[in-house]
Design a protein around this nucleic acid. Structure first.
Lengths: 352, 352
DNA sequence: TGATTTCTGATAGACGTCTTTCATTTGCAG
DNA sequence: CTGCAAATGAAAGACGTCTATCAGAAATCA
C-alpha cells in the first residue's frame, strides 16, 4: 500500500521547492504564474489532498463555530439549543468549540448587531436562522469578507448571501400534512382548518400553499384561515371560537407555533363530539405529550438533530476549505404516537 | 485560553516519566501498579484526552472498516451498498477505508467463513447483519479477541457477542404501521391482512406483534397471516388468492420483502373495488415508484443512511478507544407520496 | 549595465503522539 | 549482600503541515 502523497511529493513532482508549494497552497507571498500552474498541476496529477489532521496539529487549530438562535417564547428554538449543547461532547474530541448566541426574534437590527460583534472575534463559521431586514445583509457580507462561513438554517435567505441553506422545504411540509389528512379521511368528505402564525411569515405561507395544493384535487375543502400569531393564547381564543361556530371541521393543520393553546382547546372538547384529525409542527414537549395522550394525531418535524449534524459537518468542511457537497434538502419527519423517538428498547442492557 | 493538557503534562503531574505514561496509556511493557494508578489519576485530574489527530499522524493510521452485507435478491441490501459507497468520499478525507463484503443471505457458514478471513487481514472494525447460526459466534469472538470492533446492523444478535446494535426496533415499526392503519380507517371497521417473509424470521415476527398490539384495542381485525417468503412471485400468487377469497380486506401490511409482487397485484385490481390501505417496508425503488403512482399509501423505512452514518461514527469511536456513547435506537421513518426524499427545491441554484 | 524588485530555495523549529533503544534504578529472592 | 528481573527514565526520530527567516537567483526597470 503506497502512502498518500505529501507536500514534499508535490514539490518534487512540480520541480519547485517545498516553500513555493506552501506559498501556492496557503496563498501567501508572491509566486510566479508559471510556478503556481506547475504546483496546481502536480497536485492534480498526484491527487494530493491535504492531511487535515497534520495541518490542524501544526496550527493547534480549534474550530470556532457560532450559532445565532432567535430568543423568545418559541419552544422549538430551546429544543435546538439543547441539541446543540448535546452535540458538543462528540465534537469536543474533534477540537470544535460551539458558541450559542441568542438574539431577539424577528429583529433584524439585533441580528445585525450580533453578527458585527462576531466579526470582531475570531470565528470560523456562523450558522443563523435566515431573516430579511435592514443591515443584516451588510453584516453578513462583512463576515464573509473575512473568510467566515455563513450558513442559513431552518429558514433560508437569498442565495448569494449565505454559503448554503440547511433545512426543510416548507412546501413539502405542507403537502405532507395534506397527504396525511387525505389519508385520514379515507375518501370521505371533510373540511380542513388551517392555522398559521401570520400570512406574512414566508415559511408558514409556503406550508399553507403546500397543503392547499394537495387538498385541491380531493373532496376536502378548507375553512377560512386562522392567524394565531404563534402565540398560544391567541390560538386558543380564536380556535375555540371557530370550532364553536363551525361544527363541520374534520381536520386542523397548524403550520406555526403556539400549539399549547390549540391543545388546551382540544382537551376541553365535549366528549360526544368526534375530535378532528390534527396535524401540528415540531416535536416539542407539549406536542409530544399531546401525541402520547391521543389528543392529536400527527406531528411533522423538521428534525433539528439532523439539521444541526449537517450544519456542523458543513461548517467544518468549509473551514477546511473543502468544496461544499450539495446534500439534498432535509425531508420532514412524520411522527405518530407509535414511532416517537427516544425510547430505548427494553432488551438493551449495558455492554459487557 | 490555556491549551489542552498533553502527555507531557500528565507525566509531570503524575511524577513519572513520559515513557511510563506511554506504557500505561498504550498498554505496553510492565508498569508497577503504583505508577499506573498515579498516571490514571493524573489523566483524570487534568482531564486529559488524547489528541486523535496527532496520534493518527504519528501512526500514519488508516481506519479500515468492513461491512459484511447479505447477498441475494433483496433490493434493500443493494440500497445499503449504494449508500455505503457514497458515504466514502467524505470519509476519504478522514483516512477511512470502507470495504464491502457480500455473503450469501441466511447462510451462517458463509458468514463465519467471511469473518474468519477478515480476522487474517488487519481490520479495525466490522459491521454485519446479525444472524444466528453455528460457527458465527466463534468467528466473531475470534475477531473481537484481536481487538476488532464488531457491530450488528439492521438485525441484532445476542448482546454479549457484539459491541453495539444499530438499527430500528422492529416492534416499534410494527406498531407504527398499526397506528397509521388505524388513522386511515378513521374509526370505521376494517380487516387487516398481514404479510411476512416467514414466522421464523425474528424481525418479521416482532413487527407483526407490534401491529397486533396496536390493533388490539380497536375495532380492526386481522385476517390470517400470509407467508410470502420474501419472494415476489410467492407474495404475488398468495396475495391474489387471498384478495379474491376475502373481499372484506381493507388494509394490507407487508412486514417483509418481495413487495414487487404485491404491487403487481394491486396494480391489477379491478377499478371498481376500493383499494385497501397499504403499508410496506423500505424505500427501495419499486416501493417508491408505487408510492408515487398512488398504488400504495405508506412506506416505513429504517433509514439506512442514518444507520450507516451512525455505524461509521461508532466504528471510529471504538477504534479510537473512546467510551461508546449510547445512542437511542433509530426510529423508523414514515414516507407518503408527499415527503419522499431526494428532490431538490427548484429555487436552489449553485452557490456563487 | 547596475539597481531594484520579485521570486525561489533551503532550512529549522514547532504541534502532540507513537515507537524504539539503552541505560539505569528498584524490588525481591536466594 | 549478591544477582537477576522488573520497572523506570531519558532521548531521539518519525508523521505531515505550518510558519518564519534568510540568502540567493531571476526578472524588471532605469
Amino acid at each position: 500500500m503506497k502512502r498518500a502523497p505529501t507536500l514534499v511529493d508535490v514539490a518534487s513532482q512540480a520541480g519547485v521547492s517545498y516553500a513555493t508549494v506552501d506559498r501556492v497552497i496557503n496563498g501567501r507571498g508572491a509566486v510566479a504564474e508559471k510556478s503556481r500552474a506547475s504546483v496546481l498541476k502536480a497536485v492534480a496529477d498526484l491527487g494530493y489532498v491535504r492531511n487535515v489532521a497534520a495541518a490542524n496539529l501544526a496550527q493547534r487549530r480549534i474550530y470556532r463555530f457560532c450559532f445565532v438562535i432567535p430568543e423568545g417564547t418559541n419552544t422549538f428554538f430551546d429544543r435546538v439549543c439543547t441539541i446543540l449543547r448535546n452535540a458538543h461532547p462528540p465534537a469536543g474530541t474533534d477540537r470544535v468549540q460551539i458558541a450559542i448566541e441568542r438574539v431577539a426574534a424577528f429583529d433584524p437590527a439585533a441580528l445585525a448587531h450580533c453578527l458585527t460583534k462576531l466579526a470582531q472575534i475570531d470565528v470560523d463559521g456562523v450558522a443563523l436562522v435566515g431573516i430579511i431586514g435592514a443591515g443584516v445583509d451588510d453584516a453578513i457580507a462583512a463576515l464573509r469578507a473575512k473568510g467566515v462561513a455563513v450558513l442559513a438554517m431552518i429558514s433560508d435567505m437569498p442565495a448569494p448571501q449565505r454559503d448554503a441553506y440547511i433545512g426543510i422545504d416548507n412546501a413539502t411540509a405542507g403537502r405532507t400534512a395534506g397527504g396525511l389528512i387525505v389519508l385520514a379521511h379515507g375518501g370521505r368528505a371533510g373540511r380542513v382548518l388551517p392555522i398559521i402564525g401570520a400570512i406574512t411569515a414566508r415559511d408558514h405561507a409556503e406550508r399553507l400553499a403546500g397543503l392547499r395544493e394537495t387538498l385541491a384535487p380531493t373532496t376536502l375543502t378548507t375553512a377560512p384561515l386562522v392567524e394565531g400569531r404563534d402565540r398560544h393564547d391567541v390560538v386558543e381564543a380564536r380556535l375555540r371560537a371557530v370550532l364553536a361556530a363551525d361544527p363541520q371541521i374534520t381536520a386542523i393543520y397548524s403550520a406555526g407555533a403556539g400549539n399549547a393553546g390549540l391543545i388546551r382547546v382540544i382537551a376541553a372538547l365535549p366528549a360526544d363530539r368526534p375530535r378532528p384529525v390534527i396535524v401540528l409542527h415540531e416535536l416539542v414537549a407539549h406536542n409530544r405529550a399531546a401525541l402520547e395522550a391521543g389528543l392529536i394525531d400527527i406531528v411533522i418535524d423538521q428534525r433539528p438533530e439532523e439539521e444541526i449534524t449537517r450544519t456542523l459537518a458543513l461548517l467544518r468542511s468549509l473551514a477546511d476549505r473543502h468544496p461544499l457537497p450539495d446534500a439534498p434538502l432535509i425531508v420532514p419527519a412524520i411522527y405518530i404516537r407509535e414511532n416517537l423517538p427516544g425510547t430505548r428498547a427494553p432488551s438493551e442492557g449495558p455492554a459487557t
